[in-house]
Design a protein around this nucleic acid. Structure first.
Length: 468
DNA sequence: TGAAATGTTGGGGCG
DNA sequence: ACGCCCCAACATTTC
């Protein structure tokens, strides 16, 4: 083919990129395209943390392409319409892209494929963001796995595809008259405090983060991952996996290298299982798209969540009076990121202490998180609420005080994010509510609810549905 | 990738 | 010395 368009979406990198490499390899002229889509940009689920990360990743992508003589074409509008327009102007024979499994994306791509077909342009999509897609790992009975452990066994038993080679230099120049929008330098998203996240964006930053993590921290991951105060306890690669500034093939390839001279690989094993969770939930979303709008177990659609708007607002703002919960929420609000242990704690607290539907928490997370991903976020929330696949049973309820004592024993993380408590030692801090005199002097809010009481109410709420 | 309630055991204080 | 009680520590059950 003479001219092929590569449509970038969640694969903002030039190395180890399946569709991009195919497009470059099989054409004389490669047209790399990114399209701003209002259906996504204007969604209430998209917040400044992610927009800023996307913008900065796009800038990096444009630079990386430029070093090889390629020019990123940026457009704005309905994707199908823009693709047809570019294809007609450049006489492109095909549009290549990497598959995306969210319900909106599946619909969008089907529509784009149809429109392009009408215009005589070939559309081809590739597997790229996961090792194994929804229908590739099935049970003996031919059904999708809905339990993690057997799924992960099947996943681990499979080969691990090697990274895809990086694309080479442009073979011919793009028509200079082909227009491209400038990337907004002064977008309000970049002024927003959330854009000052801890996450350097782009492909090089992702590679650097990976290198840093696998050099040492990954070997303590099985222990360290539970302690939010440990900066290097986790990889912090989640936004890069979300936007495809890195690919899982590259990650596994690097892990294999560092594992080669290690007899004990517990850290690596445990971290790999987190990567498998990611594919597990992507596979769940692809096979059961209804989880995006309801409980995986439909009987739980009848649950009567009784928490109030005021309580929800307190949770969002980090004013619940439970130090570990409030520290976690304030960290999220300030940085766009939250440690996974804390995600479980605040999710359990919203659903099982405040008795507020997981879906409200899910939406708030999506708006705030720099790594917000429908499949992983939805899976995590349904797991915590006990309404999902392989979920924590509904009666598994975290005690927010105990969790704080266990996973932030010194109180270091709490003091970092809750300045009212910064002068307290760990002993005073976790059970501050038992010391009303000290509590009143700190200016920190008293507990919003009584955990033991709410726990009972939660159990009753679930039992009411089970009995029905 | 729990926590709380309940049950069991055994050491030690004490009359 | 003995039985009783207390209670921490651990185990089991229940949600």
């Amino acid at each position: 083919m003479h001219t092929v368009i590569h449509w970038f979406r969640r694969d903002l990198r030039i190395s180890d990129n399946t569709a991009l490499h195919e497009a470059w390899n099989r054409s004389q002229i490669l047209i790399p395209v990114f399209i701003w889509d209002d259906a996504i940009l204007r969604s209430p689920d998209v917040g400044p943390a992610r927009v800023a990360f996307l913008l900065r990743s796009l800038e990096a992508l444009a630079r990386n392409l430029e070093t090889l003589g390629h020019r990123l074409i940026v457009r704005h509008g309905p994707p199908a319409e823009q693709l047809v327009r570019i294809a007609q102007q450049t006489k492109a024979a095909a549009v290549f892209t990497n598959r995306d499994y969210e319900p909106y994306s599946v619909h969008r791509d089907r529509h784009a494929a149809a429109e392009l077909y009408q215009a005589g342009v070939y559309f081809e999509s590739f597997k790229d963001s996961v090792l194994w897609e929804g229908k590739e790992i099935l049970t003996q009975a031919g059904a999708p796995y809905t339990v993690f452990t057997p799924y992960s066994k099947a996943w681990r038993a499979r080969p691990r595809p090697a990274p895809v080679p990086r694309i080479g230099p442009a073979k011919r120049q793009l028509d200079p008259s082909l227009s491209s929008l400038p990337l907004p330098q002064d977008s309000s998203a970049l002024d927003h405090p959330l854009s000052q996240s801890l996450f350097p964006a782009g492909e090089h930053a992702a590679q650097a983060a990976l290198k840093h993590f696998v050099q040492s921290a990954v070997h303590q991951y099985d222990e360290d991952r539970n302690f939010p105060a440990k900066e290097s306890g986790t990889s912090r690669l989640s936004p890069h996996l979300r936007f495809g500034t890195i690919n899982i093939r590259t990650i596994l390839h690097r892990l294999t290298q560092v594992a080669a001279d290690r007899p004990v690989q517990r850290g690596i094993q445990v971290w790999e299982s987190e990567l498998i969770w990611r594919e597990f939930y992507l596979q769940i979303l692809a096979n059961f798209p209804r989880v995006a709008t309801g409980n995986f177990r439909p009987e739980y659609d009848q649950l009567e969540w009784s928490g109030t708007d005021e309580q929800f607002q307190a949770w969002c703002a980090g004013r619940t009076g439970f130090p570990i919960v409030d520290a976690a929420m304030r960290c999220l609000n300030a940085t766009g990121w939250m440690h996974n242990r804390l995600r479980m704690i605040v999710a359990m607290f919203l659903t099982k202490d405040l008795l507020i539907s997981w879906q409200r928490g899910e939406r708030y997370f999506m708006r705030q998180l720099v790594d917000g991903d429908l499949a992983a976020n939805n899976g995590g929330w349904q797991w915590s609420a006990g309404t999902g696949t392989d979920a924590a049973p509904y009666f598994r309820i975290f005690n927010p005080v105990t969790q704080g004592e266990k996973f932030d024993p010194s109180g270091e993380f709490i003091r970092q994010w809750v300045p009212e408590l910064s002068q307290l030692d760990s002993k005073q801090l976790h059970r501050l509510a038992d010391n009303p005199l000290l509590l009143s002097r700190t200016g920190y809010p008293p507990p919003l609810i009584d955990h033991a009481r709410q726990r009972e109410k939660c159990l009753a709420m679930f039992k009411a549905v089970k009995g029905a």
